[in-house]
C-alpha cells in the first residue's frame, strides 16, 4: 500500500521537491557561484597584487603545496585541532547539562533562558575586549579575584605560557558558543513529549529505555550539528586570537583562521589565501562527513 502510494506519486512528488529546493539553489548559487569559482580559480594563480608588473602567473598547485608543506601551517593546524577538541570535549557536556536544566520547570525559567543567550549577542569586538580585560596581567579581573581570595600573591601573565594561552582562548570561545549549543539541545529535548519522561520516572528500567531509545537517538543529530559548528568555529577563529594573543607568544597560538586572515588582508596574497580557504573547507567537510558517519552509525545501532 505504502509502496503503491509512493510509486503513483513518484514523479509529481519529485517535481514538488524540485520546486521546494529551487529558491534556495537560486539564491545560494546565484550569488555565491561566481565568488566561489573565482576563489577556486585564483587559488592556482599568484596575482602579484603589490607587484603588478609581474602580471598574473599561473602557478598550478604551488599555493596548495606551500600551505601543506609550511611548518608554521602545521603548528597552526595543531593548535586549531586542540581548540576544536577542547570546544567539543568541554562544550558538549556543558551545553547538554544546561539544556537539561532549562528543560526542567523552575521559577523564572524564562528569564534564565534569556540570560543564557547573552554571550551570543555580545558583538565579537566587545567579547574580545572583555576577555582581554579579564586576562590582563596587570589590571585583569582573573588576577584580581585570585589575589583577593589569596590563591596567588602576584599577578600572573596568563597568556605568556603557550599551552595556557591556547586553553584560555578555547575557553573564551567556548563561552560564546555554549548558548547556541545549549539551545540546540534544548530544542531537541523539547520535542520529546513530557508523558514519556513522566512515565519513565515511574520505574528505573523504563527510564533507561527512555534515555537509550528516545533521548540519545534524538540528540544524536543535534550533537552532529554541534560537532560541525564547533569545528567550523575552530577552523575559522580569528577575532579572539587577534585580540588576545595575536598568535603569540612567538607563534604558539597561531591558528588557521588567523593565518588565513593575515594572508588575505595583511599580505594581500589572495591566491595563497584562497588555496588555504579551500583546504580548510575540504578539511571541515571531511570532518563533517566523518562525524555524520559516526553519529548515523550510532543511530542505526540503537
Amino acid at each position: 500500500m505504502k509502496a503503491s502510494v509512493r510509486k503513483s506519486r513518484f514523479s509529481s512528488r519529485q517535481k514538488f521537491g524540485l520546486l521546494l529546493i529551487a529558491p534556495s539553489f537560486i539564491i545560494i548559487l546565484g550569488l555565491m557561484l561566481y565568488p566561489l569559482l573565482y576563489s577556486l580559480g585564483i587559488s592556482f594563480f599568484n596575482l602579484h597584487i603589490t607587484a603588478p608588473w609581474l602580471g598574473t602567473t599561473f602557478v598550478g598547485l604551488k599555493n596548495y603545496l606551500s600551505v601543506i608543506t609550511d611548518p608554521d601551517m602545521h603548528s597552526a593546524l595543531e593548535h586549531t585541532l586542540i581548540l576544536a577538541a577542547v570546544g567539543i570535549g568541554l562544550g558538549i557536556p556543558i551545553s547538554l547539562l544546561f539544556a537539561i536544566i532549562l528543560n526542567r520547570k523552575f521559577p523564572l525559567r524564562g528569564l534564565v533562558r534569556g540570560i543564557l543567550i547573552i554571550p551570543w549577542v555580545i558583538p565579537g569586538s566587545v567579547q574580545g575586549l572583555l576577555w582581554s580585560r579579564i586576562f590582563d596581567p596587570h589590571y585583569g579581573a582573573l588576577n584580581g579575584i585570585l589575589i583577593q581570595w589569596g590563591i596567588i600573591t602576584d599577578p600572573v601573565a596568563w597568556l605568556l605560557d603557550p599551552t595556557r594561552a591556547l586553553l584560555f582562548i578555547a575557553f573564551a570561545s567556548l563561552w560564546g558558543a555554549v548558548p547556541m549549543m545549549s539551545l540546540l539541545y534544548l530544542s531537541g529535548l523539547q520535542s520529546i513529549p513530557e508523558e514519556l519522561f513522566d512515565a519513565s520516572r515511574v520505574d528505573g528500567a523504563s527510564f533507561w529505555g527512555y534515555i537509550r531509545y528516545i533521548v540519545i537517538p534524538l540528540l544524536l543529530p543535534i550533537t552532529l550539528i554541534n560537532l560541525v559548528l564547533r569545528t567550523i568555529d575552530a577552523f575559522t577563529m580569528f577575532d579572539l586570537v587577534y585580540v588576545l594573543t595575536g598568535g603569540g607568544p612567538a607563534g604558539a597560538t597561531q591558528v588557521t583562521g588567523y593565518y588565513l586572515y593575515q594572508a588575505a588582508f595583511t599580505k594581500l596574497n589572495y591566491g595563497y589565501a584562497s588555496a588555504l580557504a579551500w583546504l580548510i573547507a575540504i578539511t571541515v567537510t571531511l570532518l563533517a562527513i566523518f562525524y555524520s558517519r559516526f553519529t548515523l552509525k550510532e543511530e542505526t545501532a540503537s
Binding site: R13, Q14, F16, G17, L18, L20, I21, S24, F25, I28, L31, M32, Y34, P35, L36, Y38, S39, I232, T236, G257, L260, Y261, A264, F265, Y270, A273, S274, A277, W278, I280, A281, I282, V284, T285, A288, I289
Partner: peptide
C-alpha cells in the same frame, strides 16, 4: 523526504560553499 536521482550529494555541494571562509569571497562579491 523526497528521493532525487542525484541523491543527497547536492546538499554537500551546498554545505561546502558555506565552509569557505568568507574572507576570500569578499573581493568577487
Amino acid at each position: 523526504r523526497i528521493k532525487f536521482p542525484f541523491g543527497n550529494k547536492l546538499i554537500y555541494v551546498l554545505l561546502i560553499s558555506q565552509m569557505i571562509p568568507v574572507a576570500v569571497l569578499l573581493i568577487p562579491l
